[in-house]
């Protein structure tokens, strides 16, 4: 077995000392002095089965992730499906000029930001509070039962979640049925445009808040119990302990989740919006994603939709970068380290 012989001859476990970090790319001739020299060809032969394993995934990513990135060229074209990416009419910035003069686009952008902000304020603290609350439940059995229940909706699709919400809160749903039976005014939340941002957030809480507690429970479990004990001995009550031990212990995770949330600020639940757009009307539910979908796919104005999508992608990239910078300022790692 050729691979075997090579890897026996070249112990890949030979870990470089901390003073001699091994260059990972660029072939064996850059290896530091202590390291046995391995030519690129030998490494290639040694790792060829690993490469074969990686290639299928890379091909899929190439076709379905990287080709679309080059496909953003359609944002600068009057894209026609008959001519494809290469032979459509190149029109430069015209799509963007039109986009930035389009009040519907700015309205969608504004909706996106407002929904994102509401979700940040009303959704974000819920998993944290729930995790702290759950952590105080002493019985392990009860705790794992509650965990099992609250994780469950994470595995439901949005279509399912919204159907369930319709049956509970919609015009013919359980809530309004109850109100009618007791001769009170009905309240159709599902088609109420003004309530939409809160409805969306409530749905997100119902579906994802339970799942969101996992990471916070992990952070809580990592806090040294001796801290609580010595604080209690020193006379700190339960609220002081929460303020001075529990919350600081979760700080890193909270900042990380905040960074993720901010970096994703423009993703406000595409499927959610798409499914409920009819019910509440586009003036409330149109966000950047649905804008791109309706102008591009439904309206066949592909270049225009692609321009809106590219705008969103670039802003998102900037947001991720900015959120990480902010995290580094706060002395945390964020998504990547400084």
């Amino acid at each position: 077995m050729a691979v075997m012989a090579d890897s026996a001859a070249v112990p890949e476990e030979a870990r470089p000392g901390p003073q001699a970090p091994l260059r990972e790319r660029g072939g064996g001739d850059q290896a530091p002095v202590k390291q046995r020299r391995i030519s690129f060809r030998v490494r290639l032969r040694r790792d060829k089965s690993l490469l074969v394993m990686v290639i299928p995934t890379m091909l899929v990513l190439l076709v379905f992730n990287y080709l679309p990135m080059f496909g953003t060229v359609s944002a600068f074209e009057y894209y026609d499906p008959i001519y494809g990416f290469f032979h459509s009419n190149f029109i430069g910035m015209q799509n963007f000029n039109q986009l930035f003069a389009d009040s519907a686009f700015w309205h969608a952008f504004q909706n996106t930001l407002v929904l994102s902000l509401v979700q940040l304020i009303l959704y974000f603290p819920v998993p944290i509070a729930l995790a702290i609350l759950l952590n105080t439940v002493l019985s392990t059995k009860l705790r794992s039962f509650i965990q099992a229940v609250v994780y469950l909706p994470h595995f439901f699709s949005w279509v399912l979640v919204i159907t369930i919400f319709n049956q509970m809160l919609g015009g013919a749903g359980l809530l309004n049925q109850f109100l009618r039976q007791h001769h009170m005014a009905t309240w159709d939340i599902m088609t109420n445009g003004g309530m939409f941002k809160y409805l969306i957030t409530f749905q997100a809480v119902w579906k994802e808040a339970g799942w969101g507690i996992i990471v916070f429970l992990a952070a809580l479990a990592a806090i040294d119990p001796a801290l609580y004990e010595s604080a209690a001995v020193d006379g700190a009550g339960r609220w002081r302990r929460m303020w001075h031990i529990t919350l600081p212990g979760m700080r890193g995770m909270i900042v990380l989740m905040l960074v993720l949330r901010l970096g994703n600020a423009l993703n406000v639940g595409f499927e959610q919006m798409l499914i409920q757009r009819q019910a509440v009307g586009p003036q409330h539910a149109e966000v950047l994603d649905t804008f791109a979908y309706y102008y591009g796919v439904t309206g066949n104005n592909f270049g225009y939709g692609a321009a809106a999508g590219l705008f969103k992608g670039v802003i998102s990239l900037i947001l991720i970068y900015a959120a990480n910078k902010a995290a580094h300022r706060l002395g945390e790692d964020g998504l990547y380290r400084k």
Partner: peptide, 19 residues
Amino acid sequence: AMIFTMFFSGGLIPSFLVV
């Protein structure tokens, strides 16, 4: 190459067009 796709995508329309 993999991690980059987590941060940036071509967007919905180009993906649709490629498929």
